[in-house]
C-alpha cells in the first residue's frame, strides 16, 4: 500500500489575465464548504471568504488606469508560518498532499495563526453559523460546518480530493495528479488550474514554470503553492510590497 501511494504536492496556478472578477469562485467556495450566510452585522472584515477576489489596479490616473482581479485563498505554503505557531496542533501541513489543513475541532480560537498569515487567508467564525429555514437542505453533506469561535480557511476542497482518491483506489489507480476543486469548477474562464506541482504531466506544473508566473511575497520564505500568472508587468509587480513602491514611483 505504502509503496503504491505516491506523495503529491497539490497547488494552484491562477491566470490573472483570464480572471474577470465575476466572483463565481467565491460563491462556489462558500456553497461547497457550507459557509453560513453572513449575519446582518457582518462586514467585509468579519465575513468568511476562504476564496476572495481582490480588485487591483496599476495606480495610474485617468484612462491609463488598468484594473485586474486577484483571487486570493490560502497559499498552502510549503513553509507555512501558521503551522508552527498553533499551540495545539490544529494546523498541519499534510506531507502526502502538501495541503495545509485546519482542524476546526482542535482549534482554540486564539487567532494566533491569523496574525501569522501574511496573506490574510484565514477567517474566524465570529458568529454561530445559522442557515435560514429550508436552506439546510442545500448543505454539502461531505463538509462539516464549523462552530463559532474557531478559525477556518481554504483546504483545497479536501473532501473532493478524498472522493477522487477513493475513486482512484477503487479503479486500482494511484492518487490522482489532479482533481477539481469547487472554485476551479466554477470559474467560467478557466483561470484556475489545480494539480500536482511536482508531476511533470500536469498543467499546473507547466504553468507554474511558465514565463510570467510569480508567487505572492516570495521573499518572506513561505514558499506558497499557489502561483499567479500575468503577462502584464504591473500585475507581476504586485508580488512584492517593495516592487509596488518602485512601480508607482
Amino acid at each position: 500500500m505504502a509503496a503504491t501511494k505516491k506523495h503529491r504536492r497539490y497547488g494552484m496556478v491562477v491566470d490573472i489575465d483570464l480572471c474577470t472578477g465575476c466572483g463565481a469562485c467565491m460563491v462556489a467556495c462558500a456553497a461547497e464548504n457550507n459557509v453560513a450566510p453572513a449575519p446582518e452585522r457582518a462586514t467585509d472584515r468579519t465575513g468568511i471568504t476562504p476564496m476572495r477576489v481582490y480588485p487591483v489596479h496599476n495606480g495610474a490616473p485617468g484612462d491609463r488606469r488598468q484594473t485586474a482581479f486577484l483571487p486570493l485563498m490560502c497559499m498552502h505554503c510549503s513553509e507555512p508560518p501558521c503551522e508552527s505557531v498553533c499551540p495545539q496542533q490544529a494546523v498541519e501541513l499534510d506531507e502526502a498532499t502538501g495541503i495545509v489543513t485546519q482542524m476546526p475541532q482542535r482549534c482554540l480560537g486564539c487567532r494566533y495563526c491569523m496574525t501569522a498569515c501574511p496573506y490574510h487567508a484565514r477567517y474566524f467564525n465570529w458568529w454561530d453559523p445559522q442557515w435560514p429555514v429550508g436552506m439546510e437542505a442545500t448543505l454539502n453533506p461531505t463538509v462539516a460546518p464549523r462552530s463559532r469561535g474557531v478559525v477556518e480557511k481554504c483546504n483545497l476542497c479536501a473532501s473532493r480530493l478524498h472522493a477522487a482518491e477513493d475513486q482512484a483506489t477503487a479503479e486500482g489507480q494511484p492518487m490522482p495528479a489532479t482533481y477539481v476543486s469547487a472554485c476551479v469548477e466554477a470559474c467560467p474562464t478557466g483561470a484556475m488550474v489545480l494539480g500536482d506541482l511536482d508531476d511533470p504531466d500536469t498543467e499546473a506544473h507547466k504553468l507554474a514554470k511558465a514565463e510570467g508566473t510569480f508567487q505572492l511575497l516570495a521573499k518572506l520564505g513561505t514558499r506558497p503553492k499557489v502561483y499567479y500568472h500575468s503577462s502584464r508587468p504591473w500585475v507581476r509587480s504586485l508580488s512584492e510590497r517593495n516592487a509596488k513602491e518602485q512601480a508607482h514611483a
Binding site: 508552527s84 505557531v85 498553533c86 499551540p87 495545539q88 496542533q89 482542535r106 482549534c107 482554540l108 480560537g109 486564539c110 487567532r111 494566533y112 474566524f124 467564525n125 462552530s147 463559532r148 469561535g149 474557531v150 478559525v151
Partner: peptide, 23 residues
C-alpha cells in the same frame, strides 16, 4: 475571554505544539 473556544484550553496540554511560542 479572548479565545473563541475557552473550554478547549486544555487541548494545549493534551496535544501541544512544542514549536509554538503560545504553547
Amino acid at each position: 475571554v479572548d479565545v473563541g473556544q475557552p473550554l478547549r484550553a486544555w487541548f494545549t496540554f493534551w496535544h501541544p505544539n512544542v514549536h509554538s511560542m503560545l504553547t
